[in-house]
Structure formats: C-alpha cells, structure tokens
C-alpha cells in the first residue's frame, strides 16, 4: 500500500506568521483534496528564514495556540511544518513539528546551525540536541533540517535507529552559477539525496523553499528519492509548487533485503572509535562496563 505525500514548495513571507499560517492551511486543504496522507513544508515555513532579530519576535512554545490551526488541519492528514520554538527556559530553536491525528506528535530542533558564509544561525538560535525517529503514516521517520542533512552522521543515526524516511525540510539559497551545470547548491543537494537514499536504503523527502529574502533567492527543486536511488518526483526550480509522490513503505524493506549494508553496520566499532576520540557519557560507560 503506497502512501501519497505532498511536498509544499512555497515562499513564506519573512516574519509574517499569520499570513504564512493561512498559506499553510490552504496548502494542506489542497494536499488533502488530492489524496495526500502527509504534507511536508520547508524549514521555518511559518516564519521565513533570514529572521535576524525577528527570530525572538516570532518565536512561540510548541503548544502555543498560534499553532492550533495546524493541529486542527492534521485530523486526516499528517503535517510537517517549520516554526521558531521558544522553550520554557527561553531558548530559541529552529524547529520542525509533526502534527498527526489532531495533535503535535514530534518536534525536531535543528542541531547543526550554520554560522559561516551567508549563514548566521548560531547568533540567533540555540542548537537542538537529539535525532529521534518517530512514527508516521508511511513508517518511522527522522527530520533533518537543512544543515543537519549536510552532516552524514544525521541520516546515519536516523537509519540505524529504524527510520525508513528522512524528511529534509530546507531553506537553501541558490548560489554558484557556473557554466556547464545546475546551480552549485542544487547539484550538492541532489547528490546528497540520492546517496543517502540509496546507501541508507530510505526515502529522502527534500522540501526546499522558493522566493527571495533580502536579495537572496531560494531555489526550490524539491524532490523525493526512493530507497533504490531513483528520483520519484522533482519540483521545478524557483517557482511555488505542490508536488505529489507515492511512497511505498515496503520498498525500503525490499531494498534492505537486496542491499543489506545497514544490517551489517558495526555499531559497536563505530562507538569504540568515537569513544577513543571523545570518551563515553557517564551513564553509557556504566552500562558498557556492566556488559
């Protein structure tokens, strides 16, 4: 049984939460009407990306009433959307929430905050601390927000923890316009999508935004790549687009039978090597010593 997923390649307005929420609800309605079970929005889809000092102004708690329309809209379709989360202790995170059956079931906080080149995330945001898979209508999934996905350990950790889907919401600025190829950033992203999908045998659902913020243009090109490395569907570059694709949860399992790289992964060896470099957390050391 395949699951229809919608990739909402949209252009959020910077700092205009209410307008963006209306856009989300309308898009969710369209996705639902087209038979989608899951709709995925890009990074910070409710607020826009280059927020700078606006980050604090638009931040809200994960259980804030402002997000209630997404919970309401998620009664019969799962929704993944990006917002700025303010925690109880006042930290501000780039977050992606997953709403299902009328409530928020998972929040991922962006772990890797790029602070170089055109990026300044760590000036304004606190880093997330976990990569936890969670259940969805199409199987176990993990969320990698933009820069998270550029670190190979992120999809790796999700995959060894049971994910068969990597949701990769992004706000990727287009740059690198050299002759003889696509945008430099587009080439890199496509390479990652295909590599992770094929070698970790999972679905990669890359949803990138479009539109301009302060002179920087986001390039879109959202795509979904299957566990066998095939591109199932790809949206055009630069334009808003609601892309639909079918995900077959059984395909990951079939691919893993044929291509059992993940099964043969030696976690203890990886852990030992990492421990040689950074040591082991105290609690984990006691567990291992006991074994």
């Amino acid at each position: 049984m395949s699951v229809r997923v919608a990739l909402a390649q949209c252009a959020p307005k910077l700092g205009a939460f209410d307008r963006n929420m209306r856009m989300h609800v309308e898009t969710i309605d369209r996705a639902r009407a087209a038979g989608a079970r899951i709709v995925v929005f890009p990074e910070l889809s409710l607020t826009g990306y280059y927020l700078k000092d606006l980050a604090s102004d638009v931040a809200c708690a994960a259980d804030d009433e402002k997000l209630a329309p997404l919970a309401d809209a998620s009664r019969d379709i799962d929704v993944l959307a990006g917002f700025v989360e303010r925690t109880r202790d006042g930290r501000i995170h780039i977050a992606s929430g997953y709403w299902s059956a009328g409530s928020l079931t998972h929040v991922h906080r962006k772990v890797y905050l790029p602070t170089y080149g055109i990026f300044d995330d760590a000036r304004y945001f606190a880093a997330g601390e976990r990569f936890d898979p969670f259940p969805t209508a199409a199987g176990q999934a993990g969320i990698a927000i933009c820069e998270d996905a550029w670190h190979p350990s992120t999809p790796y950790l999700y995959a060894i923890r049971g994910a068969t889907i990597l949701f990769y919401p992004s706000a990727s600025p287009g740059r690198g316009v050299a002759e003889g190829g696509d945008l430099g950033t587009a080439e890199s992203c496509r390479l990652m999508d295909q590599f992770y999908a094929q070698y970790l045998t999972l679905y990669v659902v890359f949803v990138n935004r479009v539109g301009n913020e302060d002179g920087i243009g986001f390039w879109g090109g959202s795509e979904i790549v299957a566990p066998d490395g095939t591109v199932v569907a790809r949206a055009p570059e630069f334009d808003e687009y609601l892309l639909f694709a079918e995900m077959d949860p059984a395909l990951a399992l079939r691919e893993r039978a044929r291509n059992p790289i993940l099964r043969d992964e030696q976690h203890d060896l990886v852990l030992r090597h990492l421990a040689e470099r950074v040591g082991l957390p105290q609690g984990l050391k006691e567990v291992l010593d006991r074994d």
Partner: peptide
C-alpha cells in the same frame, strides 16, 4: 538592531 530589509513585507 538587525532586522531584515524584507521584514513582514
């Protein structure tokens, strides 16, 4: 005071 140019535009 670092607000984006495109603030709520």
């Amino acid at each position: 005071f670092l607000y984006p140019r495109d603030w709520e535009a």
